[in-house]
């Protein structure tokens, strides 16, 4: 499943990534439908892709009620797994949403996985199944891996320097493993404080600088942390 998501994903835009992730889930996991939505305040709320009308309905209900598993996953940045939608205690956190779902569709199980980079939520993957029941342990591990990679690919797309966007060597994040370098995260924090921007913009600025200077992102990050490099508004 992870492989299916990764195949040719480097040039894919957010919508194409969402579609690939949804299709991989329906093919590889025991679920009937999937959808990816973006819920952050910065971006307009939108469903990037849904596999079928029921998946779409689930997204629409959550948007209009501003309630549900998907909203919770986006808010807390943690997976929300509901193996049995008919179980009162599992759905007690969003009774209105649960009632609205029961009225309009047959949903046995619902799983909401955040696409998360630190505190930044770039979307939520919703999976549903007509029959209740959890995912297998192996399936769930695979799903988390796929979601993790898609989150990095989306952050990658959001922060790739404009000049580098259509070049082959546009620093593909998941491959280089920069994502696990703690200096990149520390530097992101310093740059966001220097510029008064959010983490995504701070990372984008560092990547643009790294690209312009023909250096690695992690090297730029180390310079920032060591205070050899400071970002300013007028720096291009």
């Amino acid at each position: 499943m992870t492989r299916a998501v990764l195949l040719g994903s480097r040039d894919a835009d957010q919508r194409a990534l969402a579609e690939r992730l949804c299709r991989a889930c329906v093919d590889g996991l025991d679920v009937d439908g999937a959808a990816v939505s973006v819920l952050t305040a910065r971006t307009a709320r939108a469903t990037l892709f849904s596999t079928d009308p029921t998946a779409d309905l689930l997204e629409e209900l959550q948007f209009s009620l501003n309630d549900g598993a998907c909203i919770e996953a986006a808010t807390y940045g943690a997976p929300v797994m509901v193996p049995d939608m008919h179980h009162g205690t599992e759905t007690a956190r969003w009774p209105v949403f649960a009632a609205a779902v029961a009225e309009r569709a047959t949903i046995g199980a619902l799983f909401a996985l955040p696409l998360q980079w630190g505190a930044v939520n770039v979307g939520v993957l919703d999976l549903y199944r007509v029959l209740p029941g959890g995912l297998t342990v192996a399936g769930y591990a695979d799903l988390l891996r796929a979601v993790d990679i898609v989150a990095l690919l989306v952050i990658n797309r959001l922060t790739v320097p404009a000049e580098a966007a259509d070049r082959e060597d546009a620093d593909g994040w998941p491959e280089t493993g920069s994502a696990t370098h703690y200096e990149v995260h520390q530097a992101t924090g310093m740059v966001l404080a220097q510029l008064g921007v959010d983490p995504v913009v701070a990372l984008a600025r560092m990547r643009a600088y790294a690209f312009a200077e023909q250096r690695l992102l992690v090297e730029i990050a180390r310079d920032v942390v060591a205070r050899r490099l400071r970002f300013t508004e007028d720096m291009s």
């Binding site: 995912l135 769930y140 995260h185 520390q186 992101t188 924090g189 966001l192």
Partner: peptide, 28 residues
């Protein structure tokens, strides 16, 4: 459920990213 382990690990690792960023904010 068995899968809860993965979930906790993912949350802990993700928290680490935010904490590193927050350290950067404070250091600056």
């Amino acid at each position: 459920r068995g899968e809860v382990v993965n979930e906790q690990l993912q949350t802990a690792l993700n928290s680490r990213v935010v904490i590193e960023q927050a350290k950067g904010v404070l250091a600056q």
